[in-house]
């Protein structure tokens, strides 16, 4: 463990807590893409199957349980509990255009042709594009609540910090995973536009309005 990965995981944890608090306090899921949240639930489910087969640490296991659990609670909030506030008319990204290519790529490009490894690879590739429905929704509605912007900033920061973690691990531990690094770069690049708007607007008290 290193400071970059720890802060990255905390940023990821914070993002999830911000989202849940927004939903619970405002009793609304307005502006949140249910499709992205479903993709995140798939990401965690396919990535953490080793939860039962290999034990790394209490931290690792508890974080995995938390991420899987909260991802399903979030999907439940959107599609059941707060369904009347779900804005399905603006959440129209065709996720099959993500899942099919990512599934095919995971099948072709992976470290080992085994079920667990292909599912892990699928999860890594899927996570890199899972935020697209959410960013698409923000661009369609033309704006995002500031709490949603904070959620996206924390979520985008987590993988950017993981990039620093991989640089650190490469030089100090000789650890290198090309698949995770490439997907992490794609994932972080997708947030660049948002990061720019967040830093230039939200931090000055303005609202975000992605070009519609």
């Amino acid at each position: 463990m290193n400071i970059f990965r720890l802060v990255g995981d905390m940023s990821h944890l914070l993002a999830i807590i911000i989202l849940l608090m927004k939903m619970w306090k405002s009793r609304s899921v307005a502006g949140i893409s249910g499709k992205s949240q479903i993709l995140f639930a798939i990401v965690f489910t396919t990535r953490y199957l080793d939860l039962f087969t290999s034990f790394v640490s209490i931290y690792n296991t508890s974080m995995k349980v938390f991420f899987i659990g909260t991802s399903y609670v979030t999907v439940y909030f959107i599609y059941q509990h707060f369904k009347p506030t779900y804005d399905s008319n603006h959440d129209t990204f065709r996720v099959e255009f993500l899942i099919v290519p990512v599934g095919g790529l995971a099948f072709l490009v992976n470290h080992e042709f085994s079920l667990l490894e292909i599912l892990w690879t699928f999860s890594i590739y899927l996570e890199s594009v899972a935020i697209l429905p959410q960013l698409f929704m923000v661009s369609k509605t033309g704006e995002a609540e500031s709490i949603t912007s904070h959620y996206l900033f924390a979520l985008g920061s987590y993988r950017a910090l993981y990039l620093l973690n991989w640089i650190y691990r490469y030089y100090f531990e000789g650890f290198f995973d090309l698949i995770a690094v490439v997907a992490g770069c794609v994932q972080t690049i997708l947030y660049c536009d948002f990061f720019y708007l967040y830093i230039t607007k939200v931090l000055k008290g303005k609202k975000i309005s992605l070009p519609a």
């Binding site: 990965r5 995981d9 990821h12 080793d50 290999s54 790394v56 690792n60 974080m63 995995k64 991420f67 470290h111 892990w120 993981y162 973690n165 490469y170 000789g174 650890f175 290198f176 995973d177 090309l178 698949i179 995770a180």
Partner: peptide, 10 residues
Amino acid sequence: KKEARVKDEL
């Protein structure tokens, strides 16, 4: 520099 067999990252 193969990646660690056991996935220790989240």
